[in-house]
């Protein structure tokens, strides 16, 4: 009761395994409201896995995840998720507008018709991402940067409190990258919480307020200027803890 606003995301002792091999091991993380967190780590460190586990798309072996203080997955409706670009079927028969409107479904209910307000709202979201001229294009006929922005527009339309984004900067042009960064900061200033998987170390420092360094273990989590040190980065990128991964896989197998 002392804390009226529950913490958006609390992860405790989370262990995740993929085909009998541990990918995440004993992760503890508390993300405060209004923070813009970058998740940094080498390839195969489990960055995307972490986000997907929060979304309930991957089963966890151990530990718990609290979303807005809710242990069960009810509060998942307050999350906006931007998937990795490769994970989407770009031949799917929907237009950019349709995708953005999907973000409104949570507000309109599943069965009721979409009203004009939702439509104008969705247009505004597209407008903000400079996509209004492309609203009626099938999503496969957009460029990489435009596709990414469509999904960001959808996240905007969702009006979530917590955003999880999987590599939004992957394969986009410089203009899109700037738009996205501006959007992230704007959302943060509105009091939203954002967690963004990022792999480019050179830009990580200027884009994010907080960083989570991840390599199977959470190596460090904190303000960017405290965490973005040579020593910690060395530990993140300096190879895996072989004994941990080997024993961990035996532990998972013994279940």
């Amino acid at each position: 009761m002392t804390n009226p606003i529950p913490i958006p995301l609390e992860i405790h002792d989370l262990t995740v395994a993929y085909e009998h091999k541990p990918v995440l091991y004993g992760i503890d993380l508390k993300v405060e409201q209004g923070s813009l967190v970058g998740i940094i780590g080498p390839n195969g460190a489990g960055k995307s896995t972490l986000i997907k586990t929060v979304m309930g798309m991957i089963k966890q072996e151990d530990g718990y995840i609290k979303i807005f203080g809710n242990k069960n997955h009810k509060a998942i409706t307050r999350i906006g998720y931007v998937p990795q670009r490769e994970s989407v079927d770009w031949d799917f028969p929907v237009t950019a507008m349709d995708v953005v409107l999907m973000g409104r479904f949570g507000h309109t209910g599943w069965f009721r018709r979409i009203n004009k307000r939702d439509r104008t709202f969705a247009s505004a979201c597209l407008e903000q991402m400079n996509l209004l001229p492309y609203a009626d294009r099938q999503i496969g006929n957009l460029s990489g940067g435009q596709q990414q922005r469509v999904f960001l527009a959808r996240a905007l339309a969702q009006q979530s409190d917590l955003y999880l984004m999987d590599e939004p900067f992957e394969g986009v042009d410089a203009v899109t990258e700037k738009t996205i960064v501006a959007l992230l900061k704007q959302l943060r200033d509105q009091g939203k919480t954002l967690m963004v998987v990022h792999h480019d170390l050179s830009t990580a420092k200027e884009y994010f307020d907080q960083l989570a360094l991840l390599n199977m273990r959470l190596v460090a989590y904190g303000n960017t200027n405290e965490v973005f040190t040579n020593e910690l980065l060395q530990r993140t990128y300096g190879g895996k803890l072989t004994v941990l991964s080997e024993v961990g896989s035996r532990k998972v197998n013994s279940h």
């Binding site: 997907k52 979304m55 309930g56 798309m57 997955h73 009810k74 998942i76 409706t77 999350i79 906006g80 998720y81 998937p83 989407v88 079927d89 799917f92 929907v94 995708v99 999907m102 973000g103 479904f105 949570g106 599943w110 069965f111 959808r154 969702q158 979530s160």
Partner: peptide, 22 residues
């Protein structure tokens, strides 16, 4: 017709469907 929206979203993007509580 009735389930159109549910079917559409669950087919297109499972994570979105989950985060909409479907």
């Amino acid at each position: 017709f009735v389930l159109y929206r549910l079917l559409l979203v669950t087919s297109f993007d499972l994570s979105l469907a989950k985060s909409l509580g479907m």
